[in-house]
Design a protein around this nucleic acid. Sequence first.
DNA 1: TCAAAAGTGTTGTCGCTACACCCATGT
DNA 2: ACATGGGTGTAGCGACAACACTTTTGA
Lengths: 221, 221
Amino acid sequence: MIDNLSIDCVIFGFDGELKTLFIRRNTEPGLGMMSLPGGFVELDEPLDASPVRRLKELTGISNLFLRQVGAFGEVDRYPLRRVITIGYYALVKISDYTIQPGVDAQEARWISVKEVPELPFDHRLIFDAAVDKLREMVRIEPIGFNLLPEKFTITDLQNLYESILDTTFDKRNFRKKLAKMNLLVDLKEKQTNVSHRAANLYKFDEKIYQKLIKKGFVFDL
Amino acid sequence: MIDNLSIDCVIFGFDGELKTLFIRRNTEPGLGMMSLPGGFVELDEPLDASPVRRLKELTGISNLFLRQVGAFGEVDRYPLRRVITIGYYALVKISDYTIQPGVDAQEARWISVKEVPELPFDHRLIFDAAVDKLREMVRIEPIGFNLLPEKFTITDLQNLYESILDTTFDKRNFRKKLAKMNLLVDLKEKQTNVSHRAANLYKFDEKIYQKLIKKGFVFDL
DNA sequence: TCAAAAGTGTTGTCGCTACACCCATGT
DNA sequence: ACATGGGTGTAGCGACAACACTTTTGA
């Protein structure tokens, strides 16, 4: 273990609103507080493998969208000694996985990004930076799809984007732009058990999705 | 000194083409090779202060545009031991400063981004990532202005953007868009000693520049 | 007088925004 | 039958790209 180098993860999910996964710490410092899941980097582990390992422990997820937020290195950001941390953000489909609190966590919980509690150390800084990155990234890659379940309605997608960007879109215009991208596959299925007209379900077209990412596509909605 | 944590800087400048500042190493490992200027972080120094100090030593520059590129942490990226490095990129006005090779450098040189030599460790990776960041950033902030001298012509500015984005623009359209931004102040001066019609000189309007940055302006040329 | 870059407007096309009503389903 | 969200088309406007010639200056 490298005791002066850690990672911290901002894990985004969506189930009607944008949420982040927090754990309640069961070790000092910060015992009892909600905080970002993180941990120290192992000596024989590539840096970027560290958050992958941590997320595997915590959620069982091994295949996910993961990016660096940045390095945080104020001298006294960690109270016990000088530790630099690398922030990461991840996108996961909440529905796909069950959360398993790791050894240093008593509890793991999805919390709306609008209701984030007080956080220890500089975690608030890391969290805010991650949200900023997410908002930048959402315009460059169609990352929204990493957050939705396999089958979703166009309204789900619209809600997701509105939730991330904290804005609203015109329904018709949103659908028109989306249609032009050819990104959605009509599953010819409908919602069930909804007390209104059932919406059509879609999945996204993996190939076109990959192509768009490579192209440096601007996903402007 | 924290001997497992370093920083490396990709310093961009412009004098007709986009260039980067490299040093020739006079210490092992990598003795004699051109490499990115960098160094280890001090124990009592905030992380982001480290590249500032390094650039001050190297160029005398203390006020500059500096951003993180990312953290690089493959297990064996550095041959002697496990070292994680944080990459930074900086924008400087070549004309404003004289380069002073630091204690661990024999020579410092501006090299065109199209002629970068073989680099030690993972410096090529860091360099490429920095160029990518620069290209992203150039569309979001009018950072071009950090690279030009105080007085410049519109053609200089256009060359800069073409050089960064590796493309060409229509002269009339470029000027029209620029005019709409109200970003330039006409200095009512002209070039001298050019063997063609002398171009008008401009500086940029600091206040509007700051306002645009805050607004999350998209600098789309 | 020639070479080299500066500077300047118009037009057609495309994309964006704004906007209102009927449809299907469960209660 | 009513409440709730699903789903659809058009018209006007603004933004963008394409395009060529005259001007100024030094050699």
